[in-house]
Design a binder for these strands. Sequence first.
DNA 1: CGGGATCCACTATGATACTG
DNA 2: CAGTATCATAGTGGATCCCG
Lengths: 105, 105
Amino acid sequence: MILHTLHLLGGHSRPGQLQRSIPGLSKKMMTQTLRELEDKGLVSREIHQIMPPNVDYSLTPLGKIFVEPIEQLYLWGIEHADALEALEANERLAGTTTDPLEAAE
Amino acid sequence: MILHTLHLLGGHSRPGQLQRSIPGLSKKMMTQTLRELEDKGLVSREIHQIMPPNVDYSLTPLGKIFVEPIEQLYLWGIEHADALEALEANERLAGTTTDPLEAAE
DNA sequence: CGGGATCCACTATGATACTG
DNA sequence: CAGTATCATAGTGGATCCCG
């Protein structure tokens, strides 16, 4: 989702905007994930100022390669919204839960 | 991986063959995942005999829809093996670990 | 603002043993 | 063979507090 969002935002973004763009994403997970993406060379981090902090994350050339299939997946999801809804419908039909333990109660 | 493998095996398979086709997949995880796929209507389970057990799992029409993007992803991976290798290479360059805690030791 | 450090409740998964 | 049950444990992620 971070790669996808970074792509949506034009290939780069500041942490704040990025987090606001992904509702539910905690600061911890965002930072942690960005560090991993950075380690793998998919994203680059640039510090422009220290106080107040002004950081910019952007997709590297390698990152852009990995964004491609991700975008395809998002497109697929949009085109097959019906199939996705079918999934959820089926889930509800089954035992309200996915956990075998909980189901036993 | 299970959907992909099921597809590879012609759309259906017995549990044993399926598990042997995915090295490292424990019986527990396989069964658990198959149950979820079943609940969501992606896979169907048919019992042909009780003793000895003869069960067959197969992709449902809905399952075949979901296999498509997965196959695309596998193909992408093959076509971009270089990009994938680049990932691993970068990982090694960084701290041998991805865990921020372990890294602090 | 960006982000590191801690604490902690869950969750996930492998191992193992058991059943028909 | 196919599957379930139980347990121990590593891993996950949110909440919170702190710093420059």
